[in-house]
């Protein structure tokens, strides 16, 4: 196997243990793998960023706002959005190297399981959609690609109306921007939204508001990076 990120050969030691209990093949080499930092220990309970307090100041602000209070139950992210992950996501999403998502699969699955084991039984997984134009440009929807990694069925309940790139906007622009999503039909089950990056949290909250308007009881979110 070759490392998905640096193209180096990954050599596996053969031991009695892995002869009888073969491990899934590694996607990253031993020097690239530690550069991804899974988020664990002392995280904000609401958005899963690294935080000394149980709820980080950003989330406090969200929960004090009358319009946004309680819209999103909590977010869980898999990795810290460090420079390595920024590089990987840029190549995966913007350059369009689809196969790179496999580097995230193992940790994403275990994190999802740990967090949503009970909830996922009755909840629906909904990936954040792209506008048609953006979808054509990229060739795939990165949120769907993540949802697909998790091994749970997912449904596309949302539609995106605008085409603006979140990454090109400031925090203030993002929070005051108009809600870009639309939902059809009604939903009476909890929803786990899936996206690639949680930055300010506005995207998943916009989606959550629309879902709640059509009857969804609770909305969670699961993202690759925070």
């Amino acid at each position: 196997m070759k490392c998905l990120w640096c193209e180096d050969e990954i050599s596996m030691d053969i031991t009695w243990v892995n002869v009888f209990f073969p491990e899934p093949p590694k996607k990253l080499c031993p020097s690239c793998e530690p550069d991804l930092e899974p988020l664990k220990d002392s995280l904000c309970h609401r958005c899963s960023r690294k935080s000394d307090t149980s709820v980080c100041p950003d989330c406090e602000r969200w929960e004090h706002h009358p319009m946004w209070k309680g819209v999103l139950s909590f977010n869980r992210s898999v990795f810290s959005y460090n420079s390595t992950l920024q590089g990987m996501i840029a190549k995966w999403k913007y350059r369009g190297d689809y196969v790179l998502r496999e580097a995230f699969q193992e940790v994403s699955r275990t994190t999802f399981k740990q967090t949503f084991q009970q909830i996922a039984k009755e909840a629906i997984l909904v990936p954040i959609p792209l506008s048609e134009e953006r979808l054509y440009e990229r060739g795939f929807n990165q949120a769907e690609a993540i949802a697909d990694l998790l091994g749970h069925p997912f449904q596309q309940k949302l539609e995106r109306i605008d085409g603006g790139k979140q990454s090109k906007k400031s925090r203030k622009d993002r929070i005051t921007s108009e809600n870009p999503f639309r939902v059809e039909g009604s939903i009476n089950k909890p929803v786990i939204l899936i996206d690639d990056i949680y930055t300010t949290g506005i995207t998943v909250r916009h989606a959550a508001i629309r879902l709640k308007e059509v009857g969804c009881p609770t909305v969670y979110s699961f993202t690759l990076a925070r």
Partner: peptide, 29 residues
Amino acid sequence: KTLFSEIPCSRCHQRHVYCRKCIEMGRVL
């Protein structure tokens, strides 16, 4: 072989290969 991969393409709605080697210069589908 390792520098080709498959993508479920939303342009043609089929699964096909793309080239990973020259992807920095724009993806070849």
